[in-house]
Design a protein around this nucleic acid. Structure first.
Lengths: 91, 91
DNA sequence: TTGACATGCAAGTAACTGCTTGCCTATCGT
DNA sequence: ACGATAGGCAAGCAGTTACTTGCATGTCAA
């Protein structure tokens, strides 16, 4: 999962999904291209596989579309592991 | 910074520092070895450079020792970026 | 001052990662 | 049924990363 976050394109995918969850692969590709990313569909697809493997994304196949949903809950592990106090923001 | 978290050994270093911050490189090596890691001193040193670069660790040179302090605050970026609710830990 | 200790620096190597390319399958519209 | 669309799979290439090896620097104790 940490490895999944290591790639800028994958983080951009998460950003994009946060902005609009439930997109199709094609839609995602178009949007990322619009944001200056040069990745091909296959590249994105591979990234999604990694993200899905990490549990950060859920793939939902329906007809000829694959809808992609964001799931940020695995990220809580990070906090639980190193106790990043979301409340220690004083000073 | 995300790349810094991508390596298991580096995460182990953060774990170890959380357990006892302010260790020296040598101390850290011994402890990690004891925990089953096979990394050499140089390897650890390189990992520390990456972690320091990410701001997750602060190196404090003093005499012939280098003390290493943990700083988890950069991790907050993760929460701020994807809004992982630290309070949605119900059920 | 001299030897031992703690660490830094740099180059080479092996493994991994991300990307491309080319082709295949499945679904929808007409 | 047939063409077009949405996506999957796999092999090969290139850039990156982690690790090792060897040597250099600086500090402390006697």
């Amino acid at each position: 999962m940490y490895k999944a976050l290591a790639d800028p394109t994958r983080r951009a995918i998460l950003d994009e999904l946060q902005d609009r969850s439930g997109q199709t692969l094609f839609e995602l590709c178009v949007r990322l291209t619009g944001k200056g990313f040069t990745s091909t569909r296959q590249a994105i697809s591979q990234h999604l596989a990694v993200l899905a493997d990490a549990g950060l994304v859920v793939l939902r196949r329906q007809g000829r579309y694959t809808f992609i949903d964001l799931d940020t809950s695995p990220l809580q592990q990070i906090y639980q592991r190193w106790r990043v106090g979301p409340c220690e923001s004083d000073t």
